[in-house]
Amino acid sequence: MPTTDEIKRRIEAALPESTAEVEDWTGGGDHFRATVVSPAFDGLTRIAQHRLVYDVFGTEIGGAIHALSLTTRVPEQA
């Protein structure tokens, strides 16, 4: 089963310039909650943003990663 650190690393590697905060939602190692901030989300719908993240894991979603709850957003402009 993936760890929170592995999930974070994979998201940040797949989405350049992104930051991810991941927590084990239930403590069982298969339900996770993540907040992902990425410039790749700019101009995308919330659904499209979530798909970008879910695509990182492919068939693991619903398997080893039973659930991944997402909050996504574009970084604030300075």
Rank of each mutant, 00 (worst) to 15 (best):
M1V: 14
M1S: 14
M1W: 03
D5R: 07
D5Y: 08
E6C: 03
R9G: 15
R10T: 09
R10M: 04
R10D: 11
I11G: 11
A13M: 10
A14R: 14
L15E: 00
P16M: 06
S18R: 02
T19N: 11
A20V: 01
A20E: 05
E21G: 14
E21H: 12
E21W: 10
D24C: 01
D24G: 00
W25V: 07
T26Q: 15
T26G: 08
G27S: 00
G27Q: 03
G28H: 07
G28Y: 09
G29D: 03
G29N: 01
D30R: 11
D30L: 05
F32P: 08
F32W: 14
F32N: 12
A34W: 07
A34E: 07
T35E: 05
T35G: 01
V37K: 02
V37S: 00
V37W: 01
V37H: 01
S38N: 02
S38F: 03
P39V: 04
P39I: 00
A40K: 09
D42W: 02
L44T: 12
L44D: 14
L44P: 13
T45D: 12
T45Y: 01
T45P: 07
T45G: 10
R46G: 08
R46W: 09
Q49D: 10
Q49M: 13
Q49A: 14
Q49E: 13
H50F: 01
R51K: 10
L52N: 09
V53P: 08
V53W: 03
V56I: 10
G58I: 03
G58H: 12
T59G: 15
E60N: 05
I61G: 10
G62H: 08
I65L: 15
H66V: 07
A67Q: 08
A67V: 03
L68E: 00
L68F: 04
L68R: 02
T72C: 15
T72P: 13
V74S: 01
V74G: 03
V74W: 04
V74M: 05
E76K: 07
Q77I: 14
